[in-house]
Computed example of a mutant assay.
Amino acid sequence: MLKGVNRLKPASRTLVFAVCLAVAGACSPIFKNHGYVPPTEDLAKIKVGVDTRESVEETIGAPTASGVVRDSGYYYVASRIRHYGPKKPEVVSRQLVAISFDQRGVVRNIERFGLEDGYVIVLDRRVTDSNVEDKGFLRQLLGNIGNFNPANIPGVSQ
């Protein structure tokens, strides 16, 4: 029944086995971790109303991002992304820790958010319309013959 398999040379069997192993390995997901979120134990060391920006950085490290406004907060973000074969990468988990400060730079609030708390925001790409879709190259070139004005050339004085 398996006479054809038994006739394969040992090198061929090894090659077939290696190819099967590579195909099976290619189907396993690959996880990538990005960013940093301080552990709960380190966040517990921060006292609301007592700690300042400097003491927060000493305790848990520099933030991933900070707010644009001077008195806004620190943000620590960590994401775990799964890559699975030819499929589009998928964000499996995301954590965000937001530490807000008052005008004096003292901690006002510490919040933790997960992927389930977020919203998917579609970013639009804005492209300037060129208005040349219906004109060919020669039409564009010949259409500018009557529009020439020497006063528009820089460096030419009248």
Rank of each mutant, 00 (worst) to 15 (best):
N6Q: 15
V97D: 00
S28K: 10
T64E: 09
A11N: 12
G143M: 01
V19A: 14
D117P: 04
F101N: 00
G146L: 02
L115Q: 06
G143Q: 02
V69N: 06
V69Y: 04
V69G: 07
R125D: 02
R80A: 02
A65P: 00
E116I: 14
P89R: 09
Y76H: 00
G143L: 04
V120R: 03
S28F: 11
P63T: 01
V69A: 13
V48Y: 10
T52A: 07
S157I: 14
V156N: 10
N152C: 03
Y76C: 00
N33P: 02
H83G: 05
V23C: 06
V132I: 14
P154I: 08
V106Q: 02
E111G: 11
A65L: 08
A78M: 07
N33L: 15
F101H: 01
I99S: 00
L141D: 02
S12G: 07
A22Q: 03
V69R: 08
R108F: 13
E116C: 05
V127H: 05
Q95A: 03
V77Q: 00
N109K: 13
I145A: 09
K45M: 11
V77D: 05
L96T: 03
N147L: 10
A26Y: 11
P150M: 09
L2R: 01
I30G: 01
S66G: 07
D124Y: 11
G4P: 01
T40K: 05
P38L: 05
F137V: 06
T52N: 06
P39Q: 10
D42H: 07
Q95S: 10
A26W: 09
G146P: 00
Y75D: 03
P39E: 08
S130C: 04
G4E: 08
V5Q: 08
N152H: 08
D51S: 11
K47E: 14
